[in-house]
Each structure stands twice: as C-alpha cells, then as structure tokens.
Amino acid sequence: MAHNASSSSPTPRTGAPDAVILPAPTAWPIVLAFGITMLLAGLVTSASVSILGAILAVVAFVGWFRDVFPSEQHETVPVHADSAVVFTYRHHVERLAVAPELARAALPLETYPVSAGVKGGVAGGVAMAVLACLYGVIKQGSIWYPINLLAATFYTQSLYFGTTSLKAFHLNSFLLACGIHLVTCLLVGLLYGAMLPMFPRRPILLGGVIAPILWSGLLYSVMGLLNPLLDKKIDWWWFVASQFAFGIVAGLVVARQTRIRVHQVMPFVLRAGFEAPGLSGEKDEPR
C-alpha cells in the first residue's frame, strides 16, 4: 500500500485474555440441511430418497440436541500475541480559531411544535369545509355537491353520472371526501407549522394570502390537463375563497401557539460533516 503516512499513533491493547471460548464446530447443521433437502426431494424422485432424508434429519436432530444439552459444546481458542493496533495515515490538521459569535445558525432557532400544525390544519379544515358547504347550498342547492366533487378527484367515475348524482348523498364518496379533506388539511397544517417561522414578520400574509394564491393558481393552470371534466365543475372564485379561509384560519391558529427551540443549533459545517472542531459547543465527557 502506497500511503503517505504522516503519523502513526498505535493504541496498545491491554487486558486481553490468553484464550477465548467459542462454539465448537459441528457437522449436524449440514447433515440436517441435507436431510431436509432429501426428505423433500423424495417427492419428485423416489420414496427411498425421502426415507433416507428423514433418517438423516432425525439423526441430525438428536446429534444437535446432544451438542447443546445439557451444556453447549465449546472450543478454546488461544489469543494471538500480535493484537491489532489502531493508527491513522491522515495528516494532522490545525484547529480553526473561529470566534464563537461567528458560529451563527442560519435556520430559525425557534419553531412551532408539531401539535401547532395539527391544530392549525384542523381549524383551517373546518373553516374551509364550512365555506365549501355554504357554496353547495347557495350555488348548487345541495350540501353534498362539493363533497362529491372532492371525492371525484380520486373516484373519477362519479363525474360521469351527472349533476343530479353529484347533488345526492353517497356514503362512499362522503367517506372518501372526509379522508381526503382530513389528510390534506393535516399535512398542509404541518407544512404551515414548519414554514411560518421562516417568515416571522408576516405569517398571515404567507399562510393566508400568498400560499393559497400560489396553490390555486397552480391547480387552475393544470386542472384542465389533469382532469378536464372536474375542471368544468369547479367554481374557481369559491375555490379561491375557501383556500383563503383555510390559510387565514390555519395561519392564525399556528401563529398563536408557543414556539419551541429547535435542535439544529449546530452550525451547518458540522452538520454537513466538515472537520471543523471548535465551531460549536463540545462535550467534555463521552455519554
């Protein structure tokens, strides 16, 4: 090996025993494996093969048990005198002298707990659902219309049944819509909880206005391609209004929660694995 060894600091081992006890070698595992194989191979060859396999397996079982009962068979292996030593070929490096105040974390030092995102998601989801149901009653004359429409994002066949069917109650669609709504609201709530600390000055602007506009704009631009039938059924003004309702309520609820300190107080260079001792608080003793 053509290493450029710059240092060699062997760490001597002490207290090694003269011998070590290990499990003794045994033929019973291979005999048992062969016996099981023969036993099964007899099904496609000859009954005599199975009989031989069964005999081998039984003998191996007995031999194996005698190996480990009443006490396990061991062998004593002497320890070699030349125990391994540990050394490095690595060049020694100087420690960086960086002032502690320069080791500033770029991420927020405080964030919202997971429960804040859950609460925000649930509250926003309720606000959104109320507005959507209001739309159903006022514009379509049925509370089930927006619910069936939401379920149709996954169960597209329901769109083919026409507007009358969309205004009727369907248990499957109701359950599906509830599931979609709950999961989506919780996930977006959690996202708000994670993102709002990054915009600490105007959380409501982000959560209640910017994010709903971006999301609605994205959906509006692609829905015609993804699902043209569904696109025709959506009233986009009401859709944007319900997005605002979710965003504002979720943002408000999240922003009112108590913040907690993040664990990522270590500078990026250390979390990225750079060798930069002295950049952060170090422990004096191993745990």
Binding site: T11, V86, M266
Partner: peptide, 28 residues
C-alpha cells in the same frame, strides 16, 4: 474470536476516536 477484548465505543466512528483522541466524534 474477532476481538481479543470486546471493544467499548463512544461514537459512530470508534476508530476515528482512537486515531484522533484530540478531536473525538463523541464531542459532537
């Protein structure tokens, strides 16, 4: 027997710690 004495580790890179006692991983 693999190891004459069973090792004791203090970090995810035990050999780094042995090779660099001045800057062991367990500090971080």
């Amino acid at each position: 027997y693999n190891f004459a004495t069973i090792p004791v580790v203090e970090s995810r890179r035990p050999l780094w710690d042995l090779k660099h006692p001045e800057d062991p991983d367990w500090k971080y």
